[in-house]
Design a protein around this nucleic acid. Sequence first.
DNA 1: AGGGAGGCGCTTC
DNA 2: GGAAGCGCCTCCC
Length: 133
Amino acid sequence: MRPTTISSLLMPKQKSQTFTRIRAEVIRLVSLIPVGKFTTYGSIAIHMNVVPRHVATVISRLTEEESATLPWHRVVSTNARISQNMPIEIASVQQARLQVEGLSIDAKGYIKNADDHFHVVGVRREIRWTDAD
DNA sequence: AGGGAGGCGCTTC
DNA sequence: GGAAGCGCCTCCC
């Protein structure tokens, strides 16, 4: 997108208002996940009324500062599994950090005793855990 | 188990 | 302006 208006020249980093809002909210929610807990993309998405992809997009495009300060590693895929479509080195970091925080993860990337560590983002919890255990 | 589609929003053509 | 492709996902077949 090229800056062609006065406002875009004044605020070159401003994207669409919608996505900016989504992004800020995702970051806020992630920052609220306590040590030793985790939540899922879908959980955050449901709470915010957006599609999971957008949550993933935000988290995958954090700035260096944000990824350094934000507990992004506490966000995993459905059924408490570490995302498989992620560069292995990043997934390794994520798994290591979670283990440091006291979580057990099996060989397939599933967090053990997920219910004991699941952080409910908001009031709505419409995730299917039926086959989780 | 593996692949396709989907609500949306971004980017590029 | 608008179409097509893409996405640390998820659901459904």
